[in-house]
Design a protein around this nucleic acid. Structure first.
Length: 821
RNA sequence: GCCCAGAUGGCGGAAUUGGUAGACGCGCUGGUUUCAGGUACCAGUGGUGGCAACACCGUGGGGGUUCGAGUCCCUUUCUGGGCACCA
């Protein structure tokens, strides 16, 4: 007799057999209902660790459960294969990024197979392959045709370490999301995608995403940042062009004592031209000082600063002269880069006005105040208007409408909705990405590359240097001919943000080898939306927002049918820590897949990762913890071993003969019920399912020392089915040794039997004044009167009643009797 | 500063609808088997008191609703996450 089941041999055996039998290939046509179950694809960084394993174990359990519950499950995997780490590794070690990436993919694919995942590898994709990125280029051209991709000069985030620009979403607290360096600000001509055109739909449709975590929806809502207000035109003395400002507080307009514009505002040159030489110098100096400062430096880190331009605007309602300032706290890219300063009712304006000795005029009184008193801070809440001509005495709410209407009448203002969301900057000055399919011709200007010239292949790496835009240093790549006039032309040398690829990869899985279209719309109509998407919360405003944007575009183009949201249900798994710290190579605390598989087996690893915490929580890896799961698997093996080779009598659950039989049958069904419930409610707390499995195995171990009963035989025969989604290898081996010829993973999951789950004896809890005083065994159908009689017969209950008559009685059938004395 | 989530034994966690708090596992203690070892088996394990029956206390702190609160309400502390001059 083996002391330990031979997990290494068993796991190897079944992995190769599954592959040989193509067990996890998904047919597009099926009688069964479709279920698209997707894990976020992997960045090929080199090695998988148990943090990845937690993610894929969960996704795999869900996919396997749904298959066994009768769904046609699509469960693919692929590689987010473009990106900077490959390029940096290439620079550091002198290898081609393509080679580095391919080697990593090979290794990680091996590790994913080693984990016993049930991915359909026939649909595998890698975004760095021309077969994939040509459709990136194709999609870019469609966006370009619709005016949703455009190039413009703008102040952008530049990471000096990674030597590229970044999208707004990729700057975390002023730092690069990848390398954590402070970003700088540069004015560069860059490619953007017009995600702001979808801002309203992206916001509104969040309400429909009931299957998404609230916090993710909240993050997206805040990121989109919709504000309703008024765009107000202030005429400028001596100029034909007015300054337009955006405000959500039109009710405070009579308190506007200055205008503030960003140094980048287009009116600044005109203002500079009309001012004194001294002031012009001050303006230049101020603008120059700010131009290289990142938004973080300009905002959070700096005091409010400004220079007076010498120019004045005319207040549209009061007709008073209002000084125009340049200010560092005005964002160039929001609200038109200009604001009206109302120091009495805005904290920032108050701060600025105080520093620059600008008058503070109070126009809103708190509802509780009688008269205006000098302010030592701004009052930013709603109240009642004063010193506002005809609008005085109105409430803030009414005044906002009335003033907006008045401004509209005068042609000096109009309602405006503004978003914090900015267009998605997709240019990257890096090599390892999708070339943007545009050429520049001296005669024709910016020209889109025709579809039949796609893909524009990434040239071999050896010609590119690490400096500047790498593609720009390869003349063979840059120099081309204009598709329109045939004259000499230069290619765009920027590559695309890798989030472009990941915004649509879920559609390519549906049709991975199509060479005429990125995907067949009919397949999209069949498989979309993704029923269950599992991945980290760190993509809440990146990948998950961009994907929604792309899908809405696809929907508008008619390339997908049904709704315009790609993801029905979303689940964020938690991280895995080691010694309460994030695993990283530099800390040397990485727990690898290979090592863990070798020492404990992957079934034990999968069970541990699902058992240690609910999947959305952060878990801690411990060696003691996994040995508990190894122990469980050994106990399962030993409980089943005496039944190996014994022909199965029949597949029907036997009638329980005695209490221990009943308990055993009930335990079997409790595991199944938990597994089914956790799957169908999408809670995925399989930790509780596995705890119930422990209880079952405890009972089976106890029953093994008795004479074999039909209930135990039934439990043994059923066990492989109920553990199959969680420990797929041992399940298969037990299944085979118990005499079955086909894969356990093709079986139908055990349908929980209500009859087996019901108990006929309960523990009646008797409380006196809400405190438990007795626990009395009672028949399940015990009536209130019977329960009372049982309770009153209990000595402890009697002593606590102390001869008193219960005033009140609360009875919860089959559970509890509370007597109030 | 604003928004969101959380706090339960020595540890991870369970308690899905207000109804037996601590399931299950880890660890620890005692025992069995074994030449020995443990990744085997059995039993015990929230705190205090008690031989015991049992009693009291106990789900971050304080208050409340209720026959009854880990669960609901108010308040407060701490931890984690997100946003952060967005006019």
């Amino acid at each position: 007799m083996l002391k330990m089941y031979d997990f290494a041999a068993i796991e190897r055996k079944w992995q190769s057999r599954w592959e040989r039998d193509r067990l996890y290939r998904t047919a597009d046509a099926s009688e069964k209902p479709k279920y698209y179950s997707m894990d976020m694809f992997a960045y090929p960084s080199g090695d998988l660790h148990v943090g990845h394993a937690k993610n894929y174990s969960l996704g795999d359990a869900v996919a396997r459960m749904m298959r066994m519950l009768g769904y046609n499950v699509l469960h693919p995997m692929g590689w987010d294969a473009f990106g900077l780490p490959a390029e940096n590794a290439a620079i550091d070690r002198g290898i081609d990024p393509a080679v580095w990436t391919t080697e990593n993919i090979l290794n990680m694919r091996r590790q994913m197979r080693l984990m016993g995942t049930s991915f359909d590898w026939s649909r595998e994709i890698a975004t760095c392959e021309p077969e994939y990125y040509r459709w990136n280029q194709w999609l870019f051209l469609r966006l370009y045709e619709r005016g949703l991709a455009y190039k413009r000069e703008a102040p952008v985030n530049w990471c000096p370490h990674d030597r590229t620009v970044l999208a707004n979403e990729q700057v975390i607290a002023g730092r690069c999301w990848r390398c954590d360096h402070l970003v700088e600000r540069r004015n560069l001509s860059q490619w953007f995608l017009r995600i702001t055109a979808y801002a309203d739909r992206l916001l509104r449709d969040l309400d429909r995403l009931a299957g998404w975590p609230d916090r993710t929806r909240t993050m997206q809502r805040n990121w989109i940042g919709r504000s309703e207000g008024v765009a107000v035109k202030f005429a400028v003395e001596g100029l034909d062009v007015p300054i337009e400002v955006f405000t959500t507080r039109a009710d405070t307009i009579y308190g506007a004592t200055f205008l503030a514009v960003a140094p980048e505002h287009p009116i600044v040159p005109s203002l500079r031209a009309g001012t004194s030489a001294d002031r012009a110098v001050a303006i230049d100096r101020f603008a120059a000082e700010l131009s290289s400062k990142s938004e973080l430096e300009r905002t959070s880190l700096m005091e409010k600063q400004g220079v007076f331009t010498g120019a004045y605007a005319i207040h549209p309602l009061s007709r008073e002269r209002v000084p125009i300032w340049l200010a560092n706290y005005v964002l160039a890219e929001y609200g038109g880069g200009a604001l009206m300063g109302v120091p009495a009712h805005d904290e920032r304006d108050f701060d600025f006005a105080t520093k620059n000795e600008i008058p503070i005029v109070q126009v809103i009184l708190p509802d509780t105040a009688e008269a205006a008193a000098p302010l030592d801070a701004s009052f930013t809440e709603d109240g009642r208007l004063i010193a506002s001509d005809a609008f005085s005495e109105m409430s803030s709410g009414r005044a906002r409408e009335a003033i907006a209407a008045r401004l509209a009448e005068m042609g000096a203002g109009e309602p405006r909705v503004t978003y914090k969301l900015r267009d998605w900057l997709i240019s990257r000055q890096r090599y390892w990405g999708t070339p943007i399919p545009i050429v520049y011709c001296d005669a024709c200007g910016e020209v889109a590359v025709p579809d039949d010239q796609l893909p524009i292949l990434l040239p071999p790496r050896e010609h590119a240097t690490g400096e500047g835009s790498p593609l720009g240093s390869i003349p063979e790549f840059v120099n081309t001919t204009c598709p329109k006039c045939g004259g000499p032309a230069r290619r765009e040398t920027d590559t695309m943000d890798t989030f472009f690829e990941s915004s649509w990869y879920y559609l390519r899985y549906l049709d991975p080898h199509n060479d005429r279209m990125p995907w067949d719309p009919q397949r999209a109509a069949h498989w979309m939306p993704i029923d269950q998407y599992i991945g980290g919360a760190e993509h809440a405003v990146l990948h998950l927002l961009y994907s929604r944007f792309f899908y809405k575009f696809f929907h508008d183009e008619g390339w997908v049918a049904g709704g315009d949201e790609p993801i029905e249900r979303l689940f964020h798994q938690g991280m895995v820590l080691r010694d309460s710290e994030k695993m990283s190579k530099s800390r040397g605390n990485v727990v690898g897949i290979d090592d863990t598989a070798e020492r404990h087996g992957v079934d034990a690893m999968r069970l541990f990762l699902m058992y240690v915490t609910p999947p959305e929580e952060t878990s801690n890896w411990t060696d003691a913890g996994i040995s508990g799961r190894v122990r469980l698997l050994n106990r399962i093996w030993r409980a089943c071993e005496p039944h190996f080779g014994v022909p199965a009598s029949d597949a029907i659950a036997p009638d329980a003969q005695d209490d221990s039989d009943k308990a055993l049958l009930r335990a079997v069904n409790l595991v199944a019920k938990s597994a089914v419930d956790e799957t169908m409610t999408r809670r995925f707390h399989y930790n509780t399912t596995i705890a119930k499995l422990d209880e079952l195995v405890n009972l089976m171990t106890a029953a093994s020392s008795q004479a074999p009963s039909p209930a135990l035989q039934y439990a043994v025969r059923t066990l492989p089915i109920i553990i199959a989604p969680f420990a797929p290898h041992i399940a298969e081996e037990l299944w085979e040794r118990l005499g079955n010829k086909t894969s356990v993973h093709l079986e139908r999951y055990l349908e929980p039997d209500t009859r087996a789950l019901t108990v006929d004896e309960i523990t009646l809890v008797v409380q006196i004044n809400g405190k438990v005083r007795a626990r009395i065994p009672a028949p399940a159908g015990v009536t209130e009167e019977e329960a009372l009689a049982l309770a009153l017969a209990d000595p402890n209950v009697r002593s606590h009643l102390d001869g008193k008559e219960p005033r009140k009685r609360i009875y919860v059938p089959g559970k509890l009797l509370n007597l109030v004395a």
